[in-house]
Structure formats: C-alpha cells, structure tokens
Design a binder for these strands. Structure first.
Ligand SMILES: [Mn+2]
Ligand SMILES: [Mn+2]
Ligand SMILES: [Mn+2]
Ligand SMILES: [Mn+2]
Lengths: 225, 225
DNA sequence: ACCTAGAGTTTGAGTCGTCAAACTCATGTG
DNA sequence: CACATGAGTTTGACGACTCAAACTCTAGGT
C-alpha cells in the first residue's frame, strides 16, 4: 500500500528467508540471492527498512522484521497466495506457472479487489501448493506436515504441500501424479544413490532425490508398512 | 511487455488523446494533463518513445503513434478493458471503481493470464462501460452510437456506452438506473439552463447537464416521439 | 593468537522518471 | 506587423533503485 513494489518484494523475501533460518534471522546474502540482487543493494534497502521501522539490523548481523514489517509481509503473502489460488481455481492455469504470475500481480491488488477475490474463491485456507494463506487479520497457521524424505519404505502418506516453487519441479510432480491431496507410498529407498522411489495412488512408481523429496511435505497415514 | 509500466501508461494516454483530437494528433499538454504529469516530463518521455520508434513528433508539434506504438497501445487497452470486465462480471465490483483498479492491474497481466481471462469471460466484445475491447490481433470496432445530448424531446434510445470514467459520474448513472443496455426517453430539454431531463425505463426522471449527457452514448430506438 | 576465506558494507556511478523554473516558439489580435 | 499569450522545450536537480569494485569485519582453523 504505502510501500513501493520493491519494498514489498524485500519484505516478503526477508519474511520467507527468516522463516527458514534456524536462528530466525535472515542473512543478508540469502535476502540478496532470493531477490536476484547484489548484496550491496540488499544492504542499502535494509537500511531504509530499518529507518521505516519495518526491520531491525546491526552491521554484519542478520535481518529481522519488526512486528509492523511482519504484518506487512503477511499482507503481501496473502495477496500472493490468493492470486495463485485464483489463477488455478478460476482461470485454470497450471500450478507450475502461477508463482511467477502472482509475483507481479500481488503488487497491483487493492484491499477492495483482494476481499472480492477472497469471497469469490470461498475464503480458501491454502493455495495450490498447499501453502497456508494468511488471513486478513494476519493470522497464519502452518499445516502439520513432515518432509517426504523422512518416510521409510512401505510408509503411506498424503501429499499436503510443496515448498519448491520452481516450474520444472512442479511440472515433474504433476506429471507423476503427485499433487496436493494425493495419497502415496514409499516403495524403495537407495541411501547410497540418495534416491527414493514413490508410488502415487493409482500411478506409476517415480524416483526422486531425497533432497527434492525433502521439499515435499506429507502427512503420514496409517497403512501397512 | 518490453515496455516499462510508465511507457505503457504514456502509450495508452497518447492513443486516447489522439483518438479524441480532430487532427488525430495528441497535443503535448493534453498528454501531460491526462497523466497528471508536467509538460516537461511528457516532452522528455515522448523523446524516448520517438527513439524507440513508437511515436513521431516534431518540436512544438503534436504527437502521433507509429503503427508499432498503436499496436502496443491497443494491447494495453485490451488488458485494461478485459480486467475491468473481469472485476465487474466475475468479482461483482461496481463499475464506478474498476477503472482505477484496472489502471494498475493492466501492467501485471501476462499474455498467458490475459488469454485465460478472455476465455473465462467468454471473449467479451465490450467492457462494463460499453467501451469496445480490442481483440488479440489488435482489431477494434467502435460501436455505432451518438451522444445522448443530441436526442430531442420524446426520443427513445438505448444506452450503449459511457465515456466518462470518473467514479462519481458512474455512481450517479447507476443510481439513476442509467446503465449500459438500459432503455430511456428524453422527457424535457432546457436549453437555457443547459439541462436535459431523462426517464430511464422503469425509473424516475433525472436531470443531467447537456455536457454530461454528451459523454453518454446512445443508440436511438424507433419510439413515438 | 594469528590469518584467511567468506560474508557484509561502502562508495561512486548509472538509469529511470519526475519536477521547477527558465527559456523558446507559434499564433492571432490589436 | 509587432508582440503578448500560451503552449512546448530545456536545463539542472532530485529520489528510488541498482551494480561493480574496493573495503571491512567475523569466525574458524591452525
Ligand atoms: Mn513480487
Ligand atoms: Mn504458492
Ligand atoms: Mn496504468
Ligand atoms: Mn472501461
């Protein structure tokens, strides 16, 4: 709203980097990398965010959003994920392309349009990738899930979320029958090769690296192991 | 696409100013005014458009888009009007607010999203204000219509288009029952006061200045005068 | 304790789009 | 025909954002 498109992108990037850091601080280099910008650019923008009381930062330390910064980031994340949901559910686009589209559209959505979109979509709680959609008041509840890579041979599970937003990853998953809500079973693990073999319900067995599998979140089901 | 958001706004503005000029040339001052920018800013941007072969211009003369510039402007106009149609038809927003929303969204719509939107809306030919939507190939057909101000007392007509995009004008028209497609009849004209009185089908008589009425386009119907 | 590799910061410069204010031009009225 | 008026242009400056490259700090290993 008050923030420029660039500031919005930084806030969202810092929020996401911060979430995935153990220390809950976003390293400057990861912020820069996630925005495709040099570390120098990130440093100078973070200075502005600090001046605007949206982030805290001390020289050579990590970046942490303030309450206001976090609130703003969640607002942008809400726009992003509602737009993704709209693009898939209403317009029928593939889940592998909507992230990039939403990356631009998220900045052009007014509160009025956002609310109309939310109502039109039936106030969804999750986006097409299983990411939770922050509510209008900023509430965000992550779903209970574990990395698919932690399952054992014979374990059954339901796919609930895909963290990797890269188009080719998403296209591979869709082509394999691994979509949000799908059931699956681990049929083999090759620790030496770093590969696991997975059978989606009603589909053919596919192989994935365990690192790729660690970015796919599942909810285990009781099923004969 | 290749053009920045600012360049897109200039192209669209020049196109629209050019269309309403008798000479088919856009005066620099009108371009500047329609964008809310100083004449100096418009002059320097037009220089860039000329360098990019999107417009032609000679010092102290009018601005005229090249074929490429016109094509680009029509593409932006298509995005703008399809977005407006979506906001009204799909999201249920009021026609008085969608222009400003579309002014931002039009720059964030990729060809992929545009086509999905077009299909979802049933490839509409007109936007909520009755403005024709340029086709994907750049074809644009203006509808046959005359200013309501040129009707005489007793004439019946159908409202086909509203040129004025100002929110309060549109809210007044909607509140009066004067929406696109509505029938109406002129019940009185006061040339001295510059006012005409109109009765929308099934509604109460309302007064409008003839200048306001000249921005409302109608198609006359055979009806007893 | 040192010292180095890597992470982060600073500086200086460049692009884009804007404005204010000084300037130039075209025109039509006296 | 002069010249005032208004339209358009130029200039110089600024803010927002970016990069390359020089610089500085921190941490880990020896
Ligand atoms: Mn973005
Ligand atoms: Mn998502
Ligand atoms: Mn616009
Ligand atoms: Mn319109």
């Amino acid at each position: 709203m008050l923030a420029s498109e660039t500031v919005e992108n930084y806030l969202k990037a810092i929020y996401l980097v911060q979430r995935e850091a153990a220390t809950d601080e976003a390293p400057m280099g990861k912020i820069a990398a996630s925005l495709g910008v040099t570390p120098g650019s990130a440093t100078s923008m973070v200075k502005k965010l600090v001046a605007a009381r949206l982030a805290r930062h001390e020289r050579f330390g990590g970046v942490r959003l303030t309450a206001r910064g976090t609130r703003a980031a969640l607002d942008i994340l809400r726009r992003h994920r509602l737009v993704e949901t709209f693009l898939v559910d209403t317009l029928g686009l593939d889940w592998s392309v909507v992230h990039d589209e939403a990356e631009r559209l998220e900045h052009a959505i007014s509160p009025l349009v956002l609310d109309a979109l939310d109502r039109h979509l039936g106030r969804p709680a999750f986006d097409p990738h299983g990411d939770p959609i922050p509510r209008a008041d900023g509430a965000l509840q992550e779903s209970e899930a574990m990395p698919m890579s932690e399952l054992g041979v014979g374990d059954a599970a339901r796919l609930v979320r895909v963290l990797d937003q890269r188009g080719d990853s998403l296209r591979f998953l869709r082509a394999s029958g691994l979509k949000v809500g799908a059931g699956l079973r681990i049929v083999a693990i090759e620790p030496g090769a770093g590969v696991m073999r997975i059978r989606p319900d009603g589909g053919a067995v596919v192989s994935m690296s365990t690192t790729a599998a660690s970015r796919v979140l599942v909810r285990p089901m009781r099923g004969r192991g």
